[in-house]
Design a protein around this nucleic acid. Structure first.
Lengths: 339, 339
DNA sequence: ATGAAAGCGCTAACAA
DNA sequence: TTGTTAGCGCTTTCAT
């Protein structure tokens, strides 16, 4: 086994002290160029790698950041992870990823795990279920830098990175209006989460702008799963009076809507235009292809990490909220007016 | 800030030595039940958490395992990650995930990162490109336990976990035969990777069993991307003589095949039956829905981690290869014989 | 510019 | 059963 070499090994070979070696390796100014060069050369030759545990113990920082993700196999989140890793790596940080599986109990465990691992900062997107956020205060109390992304929480002051959900909802609705739709229904996500509130409010804003009322008096609200999408489809499309368009706050629900429409011979987009949110990978593959709002997970993750590591490295503690742009993607499911 | 409390704090409050506290916390036998109880109670009350860096430095193990994944946003791999995390967590291990992005250079970096972080073991699935595997020997040299999964490498002795790719290829081909197909073509993946070799060999085995020849003299081999799928579609479907069925070694290529068939009015499955491999999430969503072979990423990840951690904890070094079952999933794209 | 020494929090060999 | 002591590899204060 290749024995790990330490600064003491280098010191001994060079006949100097290990503190001098340490200084050379850390570009300390109080060292001669000559000694520094010698040390660096030998270190390189021997393939010296600092012992991370020793540095962590001494410096009380691990050069590791923690990530709390609701579901790693959702495309938006795995994209976000890519962004996080990219920036973190460029700054010499490792990433520990944990998953809440949308459960508050598991979210607590994630926080415990990460704090115990001694991460220098945490990036989190909160679980879908109704939350009391108490456990997040543990992070604040420990003075560990924290950045929320996508699923943020107003209650806690911290850095936040989101996409422009309001504008997304607005553009989605206005797009349907531009296609000539008059009776537009909306399926909203859980209204304790900002992002769903904003998508819904953007929707309303667009309708108001065009002096329109949403289809039916009240909008549907659910967790936007396949199953709840089926329920929603029955409610919206099963009656005598049907909407001529639906904006759903995610793409998953649209799958259920399309399925229901096909089964009941409702023509998409002519009788029913549909637009979702997220641009899941399948959105362009299904038939009809699904119009949606694209949100770039990679950028969100990257930006969140930039914010976090800047705060860690400068020992600052900003409270910014960054809003990243979204993009309307028009596909078959809403293309009433063929160009 | 909540100051982290140490075993010395506990020792002082109890008027005993810190080594006694350490023994109590680690269930050492050389301690009285009474003292142990007192220590545990106070530790619990104060919310004591051991300092991971100190333990790592002292014990030369981090209770962390490293993961090398080609692409985190591919469904099979994120599923595998779930399996890894599940088992690792149950044994008190953290997981550091790294991504090779299918590049050998990045794969090297991943290994460096993980070894430097001092992981106790590594689980890897190798990058798609032609590989010389040299960098993996660094892991072996350091005597860090290693498990390969899915994309394994014969050259290196270690633990391996794969799915039954051979049987998968066999079942896919036999299924097409059972549907009455006579001219069956195959699009193979890179033949330096075991799993693609096995899928292809399984395919041949089934044809031989039924005394059939594959369509056209030689089979196509490529990297199974969307683009190469389009190329393959042109070659196989653009000529005068067409196959009546295609087995492709992944689902991605099937998307290109279906697209081409639709554009050229080739009826699926009647004129052309198609079956893929992997059961990507979109396989059941597209139209026609795609027949395929299901491989359970979660199980693969879970099993690989079990193997790894068993070796770490027992300081053993087995060289098992575990083959997990796959499952044929029949959908519209190959359902010539309607039941 | 360099070295000696202390200490981060923990475990374990040795002593009592 | 408990305490004393040393040391894992590193950084940093203080002295030279």
């Amino acid at each position: 086994m290749e024995q790990n070499i330490t600064i003491h090994d280098i010191a001994k070979k060079l006949g100097i002290s290990s503190s001098t070696v340490s200084r050379a390796l850390n570009n300390n100014s109080r060292i001669s160029d000559k000694t520094k060069a010698k040390v660096l050369e030998l270190a390189n030759e021997l393939g010296y790698k600092p012992n991370a545990a020793a540095t962590a113990l001494r410096m009380k920082r691990t050069k590791t950041i923690g990530l709390i993700i609701p579901k790693i196999n959702r495309h938006f989140f795995s994209d976000a992870i890519n962004g996080v890793e990219k920036y973190a790596k460029s700054k010499g940080y490792n990433v520990i990823i944990t998953q809440s599986n949308e459960s508050e109990a598991q979210e607590k465990e994630c926080i415990q795990t990460l704090l115990h691992a001694g991460v220098d900062g945490i990036i989190a997107s909160i679980a879908l279920v109704k939350n009391d956020y108490q456990h997040y205060y543990k992070i604040i109390d420990r003075e560990v830098p924290l950045v929320f992304f996508d699923r943020i929480c107003d209650e806690i002051e911290s850095n936040k990175v989101v996409v422009d959900d309001f504008k997304g909802g607005f553009l989605a609705a206005e797009h349907l209006i531009s296609q000539g739709c008059k009776q537009i229904a909306h399926i909203a996500g859980p209204q304790h989460l900002n992002l769903y509130i904003n998508r819904t409010q953007g929707f309303f804003k667009a309708l108001r702008k065009h002096n329109m009322e949403p289809f039916a008096s009240e909008i549907l609200e659910n967790y936007l799963t396949r199953e709840e999408g089926e329920e929603a489809a029955k409610i919206l499309l099963g009656g005598k009076k049907r909407p001529d368009a639906i904006f759903a706050s995610n793409d998953t629900v649209c799958l259920s809507l399309i399925e229901y429409a096909k089964q009941h011979n409702i023509a998409i987009p002519d009788e029913l235009a549909i637009i979702g949110f997220s641009n899941e990978p399948y959105a362009k593959l299904i038939s009809p292809s699904l119009s949606t709002i694209e949100q770039r997970g990679y950028d969100v993750g990257y930006k969140a990490t930039e914010l976090l590591i800047t705060n860690i490295d400068n020992q600052t503690n900003t409270h910014e909220t960054i809003v990243l742009p979204i993009k309307l993607i028009e596909r078959e499911s809403s293309a009433k007016k063929k160009k």
